[in-house]
Computed example of a mutant assay.
Amino acid sequence: MPIDIATIKKVAHLARLELTPEEENQLSVDIEQILAWIDQLDEVNTEGVEPVIHMHDNINAYREDEPHNDLTRDEALLNAPQKEGGYFKVVKVI
């Protein structure tokens, strides 16, 4: 599938890239090679192969979302750069 320079320029503009004419020509060749490589996938026999949705068989292998308080206020403020009265002290932003 030939990629013309106009397409390269359009994609470069959308990606906010400034390409030299030499880079445009090289990119056109590179993209054609990539697309030719991808076209080789059409030659692979995938008859009877299940589509891969996940790389593993685990479904929703997350823990239950149960609230708990493992961190005390003093532990939370331990590394605070500034604290006052048991709270984080921050710069006033308006």
Rank of each mutant, 00 (worst) to 15 (best):
residue 86 G to M: 02
residue 17 L to M: 14
residue 73 R to F: 03
residue 17 L to G: 06
residue 48 G to I: 02
residue 90 V to R: 13
residue 4 D to S: 15
residue 82 Q to I: 05
residue 46 T to I: 13
residue 58 N to R: 12
residue 36 A to T: 15
residue 47 E to S: 10
residue 17 L to S: 08
residue 46 T to E: 07
residue 71 L to R: 00
residue 24 E to S: 12
residue 85 G to H: 15
residue 40 Q to E: 11
residue 57 D to K: 05
residue 68 H to S: 10
residue 6 A to Y: 11
residue 15 A to L: 13
residue 71 L to C: 01
residue 85 G to T: 06
residue 24 E to Q: 06
residue 27 L to D: 06
residue 92 K to N: 07
residue 10 K to E: 12
residue 61 A to L: 12
residue 38 I to H: 08
residue 14 L to F: 13
residue 46 T to Y: 10
residue 87 Y to K: 15
residue 70 D to R: 03
residue 90 V to Y: 14
residue 69 N to P: 00
residue 3 I to Q: 06
residue 86 G to D: 02
residue 7 T to S: 05
residue 9 K to F: 03
residue 28 S to R: 09
residue 33 Q to F: 04
residue 70 D to H: 04
residue 71 L to F: 00
residue 39 D to L: 14
residue 69 N to D: 00
residue 78 L to F: 02
residue 23 E to Q: 13
residue 11 V to F: 11
residue 86 G to E: 09
residue 1 M to G: 12
residue 93 V to G: 09
residue 11 V to D: 07
residue 13 H to M: 07
residue 10 K to L: 15
residue 58 N to G: 06
residue 94 I to N: 12
residue 1 M to H: 13
residue 15 A to E: 09
residue 73 R to Y: 01
residue 78 L to N: 02
residue 28 S to H: 00
residue 15 A to D: 07
residue 68 H to A: 03
residue 54 H to G: 01
residue 81 P to W: 11
residue 33 Q to T: 08
residue 16 R to V: 07
residue 10 K to Q: 14
residue 3 I to T: 10
residue 37 W to M: 09
residue 92 K to C: 10
residue 92 K to F: 13
residue 20 T to K: 07
residue 83 K to V: 03
residue 10 K to T: 14
residue 53 I to H: 12
residue 54 H to M: 03
residue 47 E to Y: 05
residue 69 N to S: 03
residue 56 H to R: 00
residue 87 Y to F: 13
residue 29 V to D: 06
residue 32 E to A: 08
residue 67 P to M: 08
residue 6 A to Q: 10
residue 12 A to I: 07
